[in-house]
Design a protein around this nucleic acid. Structure first.
Length: 754
DNA sequence: TGGAATGATGTTTTT
DNA sequence: CATCATTCCA
């Protein structure tokens, strides 16, 4: 049981508390994952059946990693049987098992956001409403938040407050759209992301025997990132935990950053009233970051009103001050960050994977990509347009989906005429009209043109029949041959592969490669071994169950040595030695959409807190005074969040002369900027701070040879062991008592001979 | 019916 | 500035 020795008192207490309701408030970097992992292992070591443990995480990746770490303690065989995954994937699994209770097919389709919006667009059009008023994104958001608050279409329609609100915003038909949307999803045998939680609630509420079954199946329930659960998730957990009350929730109110999608911070604050006899554990010691970073982060979060009192502290070194860097444009910001990374890599032999660039919005990644590429710095972008959202991938997946579920209309519309097979707009229109009149699916009309009087010409009906025959031939193999074999067959015989192969444009080539990549992934999927069931064939049906809920973060090539670029949301739960938080400008971070209310601004502030606390050793904050936004150059003010950090933790890097009306954005300009005008001239609260340490005068690199004592800016005193390489690229191996042996390029390392 | 050209339109964050 | 969507032409 030596794993208990690896825990501090608070962590250990949480791990050893086996039964009853409990809440762990875990400050940033306080070893939350370790506690969760060890707690599950501890349960199993104390005789709890892994099949009876339900552990809900925020990402599939987190679940996978946790499972394998538990496996190293209790054995993989045991760990595999834990029900561990995201809310969405776990309850999708349960919904498939129980689908017939809800009159859904077992192999129901999961609509992603694109599918949902496309369906809403159709509905708005069919209802003859103005798509400018009923924008798909807005309508979808409204429906989504209704579902997350467990408001059914019927309840929505009857809710006076909601309906009058819709009238006030000029969208009186919202309730009807919601109703139609739910109906069409049902007819298509599809659930959207929110349905996976909503329908789970329906299932548990409407069928007491099913509720009973899962209550007694899951004797121990753990929920990670509890601060980011919404009402729908909260109620699922509450119902499931009601019988045994062995519920452990872990979270940090200071890191709640998903209120925009319905996450309710009240869930964490209300835990006490739901479970009056609960035990609370606070993890307050931070093992991740330097004192400077921890203290700076604390000084920021202190500005928020809504929070649970806690004191995050660390016994780590003080560490370097947080640099605050100003650029003139977004492009220069990119150059600056790439330059810093280049220098740290060469001067301190850091690995690329030790760096992260974090931004507020995905659109900000471009200048960083360019600069990194120019400097030959390998990088990986997380998020953005996910692999699975690319057109070519969605197209191929749509064939899979349609084979599994002929009523999946979003898939149908996507591929019925792609690649082009002479089924045009008018034909689709005829199909649609007939389908809506008879309240059946497009597929039904296609198969029975006479019954539904589609009025489609014979020649065209022939083409439709060919299409149907093709899809049905795929369907016949769905549960028999390996996923890869059928996937490859579909990609080829549908004509998609040829279509993309013939496109020799760079984008076309990239698309072709993406399809290949998907097929490679399917090959891996098909080839996996099921230890409990040797010889099992992993079919396309199996593949489809997983694929809808996969995200980019689940791609496993993160062992490479690359700089990470991602939004702060995507960085949650991760940590890096060196972090750049970029684009710290008013109206960008905090986002201008958040400025209307205190609670939204507080969420932005928590987001900033999350960003800063990702850093272990070095954190740099960066902003530009102007940047391209929707095509035009716009002026930007430094973010208020910079002002909010206690100034003793930051180091304002480059003072600049006052802004001039005539803007010259050439990079040359940086050379002029050494002048004296204080940064934030118009913001009285922050004053420029002198550099904490005098820069070390670099000695002429030619003089450095083995045996000498040298001084390094960051590593301190050291001894040169050897020097090698051609004169322009001399590399020295230096031993520093503080940090050990390092290889340094003399071109970059500012070494001073002592 | 299909493809190319032109216009409008929009940027928060994600399972 | 990009993507998308609609329109226009062959």
């Amino acid at each position: 049981m030596n794993y208990l020795d690896e825990l501090n008192d608070a962590q250990r207490a949480a791990v050893e508390n086996i039964s009853g309701p409990m809440m762990v408030i875990a400050g940033a970097g306080s070893g939350k994952t370790r506690v969760l992992t060890y707690r599950v292992a501890h349960l199993i070591n104390n005789g709890v059946d892994p099949f009876g443990i339900l552990a809900l995480t925020f990402t599939n990746k987190a679940a996978r990693e946790m499972k394998s770490r538990i496996g190293t303690i209790v054995g993989d065989g045991e760990a595999r049987n834990i029900w561990m995954g995201t809310f969405h994937s776990i309850f999708a699994r349960i919904l498939r098992i129980e689908a017939d209770h809800l009159n859904y097919p077992r192999n129901f389709t999961i609509y992603d956001t694109q599918d949902s919006k496309s369906l809403i667009k159709d509905i708005v059009k069919e209802m003859g409403l103005d798509p400018k008023i009923y924008k798909p994104g807005v309508v979808f958001g409204r429906i989504s938040s209704a579902k997350n608050n467990l408001i059914s279409p019927e309840a929505y329609q009857q809710n006076v407050d909601i309906v009058s609100e819709d009238h006030q915003t000029g969208k009186p038909k919202m309730a009807e759209i919601y109703l139609q949307y739910a109906l069409r999803c049902f007819k298509a045998g599809a659930m959207d992301f929110d349905d996976l939680l909503f329908k789970t609630n329906v299932l548990l509420r409407s069928f007491p025997d099913i509720l009973y079954k899962y209550q007694h199946k899951f004797k121990y329930i753990l929920v990670d990132e509890y601060q980011d659960t919404n009402f729908s998730q909260y109620l699922i957990v509450k119902q499931l935990a009601a019988a045994h009350q062995n519920l452990c929730v872990v979270g940090d109110d200071a890191q709640s950053i998903y209120a925009f999608r319905g996450a309710n911070i009240q869930n964490i604050l209300n835990f006490q009233s739901d479970y009056p006899d609960f035990k609370q554990f606070k993890l307050e010691q931070n093992y991740r970051s330097t004192q400077t970073i921890v203290n700076a982060a604390n000084s920021i979060i202190a500005k928020n009103k809504d929070q649970i009192q806690k004191e995050v502290w660390t016994s780590n070194d003080a560490g370097a001050k947080i640099n605050v860097h100003q650029s003139f444009t977004d492009n220069e910001e990119g150059k600056y960050v790439a330059g810093e990374i280049f220098e740290l890599v060469h001067r301190e032999s850091k690995k690329y994977s030790e760096f992260a660039i974090l931004y507020r919005t995905n659109a900000q990644s471009r200048p960083f990509e360019e600069s990194l590429r120019k400097n030959n710095l390998p990088y990986r972008i997380y998020g953005g347009l996910s692999f699975y959202q690319r057109k070519e991938i969605k197209d191929l997946l749509a064939y899979f989906r349609l084979a599994a579920n002929h009523n999946d209309e979003e898939a149908f519309k996507r591929v019925v005429n792609y690649p082009a097979r002479g089924i045009g707009k008018t034909t689709i229109e005829k199909l649609t009209i007939a389908a809506r009149n008879a309240e059946v699916s497009l597929w039904d009309v296609l198969k029975n043109p006479h019954t539904y009087k589609s009025g489609i010409a014979n020649a065209t009906q022939g083409k439709l029949n060919d299409f149907a025959t093709m899809i049905e031939s795929y369907a016949a193999e769905l549960n028999s041959i390996p996923a890869y074999d059928l996937g490859h067959l579909i990609a080829t015989s549908s004509g998609i592969l040829k279509e993309l192969y013939d496109d020799k444009s760079p984008e076309g080539v990239a698309r072709y490669e993406n399809i290949q990549e998907l097929l490679n992934g399917m090959k891996n999927f098909s080839d996996q071994e099921d230890n409990t069931n040797p010889g099992r064939v992993f079919t396309l049906s199996d593949f489809l169950i997983d694929v809808a809920l996969l995200t980019d973060a689940d791609n496993d090539d993160d062992d490479d040595n690359k700089v990470s670029l991602m939004t702060i949301h995507a960085a949650k739960g991760l940590e890096f030695p060196v972090v750049f938080v970029v684009g710290l400008e008013e109206n960008l971070f905090p986002s201008q959409l958040s400025l209307h209310s205190r609670s939204e601004l507080e969420e932005e502030r928590r987001l900033f807190y999350v960003a800063l606390t990702r850093a272990e050793q070095i954190a740099t904050l960066s902003y530009a005074t102007s940047r391209y936004r929707w095509g035009t150059l716009t002026h930007a003010e430094p973010s208020r969040f910079i002002d909010e950090i206690d100034e003793k933790y930051i180091n304002i890097e480059n003072a600049t002369r006052p802004k001039t009306p005539s803007l010259d954005f050439s990079s040359e300009r940086q050379r002029f900027q050494s002048n004296t005008a204080p940064l934030f001239a118009q913001k009285a609260s922050v004053k420029p701070v002198a550099k904490s340490t005098a820069p070390i005068e670099a000695s002429d690199q030619g003089d450095i040879e083995a045996g000498q004592e040298v001084m390094h800016e960051r590593f301190g005193k050291g001894k040169v062991l050897s020097v090698e390489g051609d004169p322009a690229n001399k590399k020295a191996t230096v031993f520093f008592p503080k940090v050990g042996q390092k290889q340094l390029l003399l071109r970059f390392a500012k070494l001073q001979i002592l």
